[in-house]
Amino acid sequence: MNKTTKMVIVLTVITGLSGAILSSWDSVTKPKIEYHKLQALKVAISDVLPSYDYYEEKDIDGKTIYIGKLNDSTQPTGIAFKVDGSGFQGNLSIMVGVDPSFTSITGIKVLEQIETPGLGTKIVEDPSNKTDPFWFPEQFVGVIFSPQINVVKNSIPQNSNEIQAISGATISSKAVVRILNEDISIMKELYQSVN
């Protein structure tokens, strides 16, 4: 057997084996990974929407919205969807819940972020605030986003469309608000064009 044939055979066998191992392992882990993803989505939706019994998934123009509904009524309790945009260092992905009439926010949850640990990450959770570590996302509950959400610094918000920035992480706080301002109105138009 000459050298070249040997090389080809050995490499083919190795890659073939590797493919076999990976595909069989993938079939074991895939359902579990999918399950975790779905679970995370469910948790995110239940975090941002007010009480509902089940939710419906709906695609409008390639964007997925989740409509929360009660068993004994066809009226939605709230609408959730994902918004994206750039934060201080990279992409921010946020799940937002709004009321069916698209006037106020029912909750937000940051799904993905790579903000500065200990500063920008406070948009998710603030461990330095022992009594209320989720004060920043919780501020958005009930906020009216028309015409737009505003950010205030070093003072308690007075109006129903104001949010207090995280001190030391103004840019991250503003990024969240900017993404919400931009994307909610787009989703509003999309949603209303269908209904």
């Binding site: 090389m7 190795i14 590797s18 990974i33």
Partner: peptide, 29 residues
């Protein structure tokens, strides 16, 4: 068995296989 000319390619495929196994394991469990 692995000819020395293609050993690096062979090693990398083997290593990548096990790394992927570990990655999937972490993601699943």
């Amino acid at each position: 068995i692995i000819p020395s000319q293609v050993r690096i390619a062979g090693y990398i495929v083997i290593i990548a296989t096990f790394v992927t196994v570990a990655d999937k394991f972490l993601a699943a469990y």
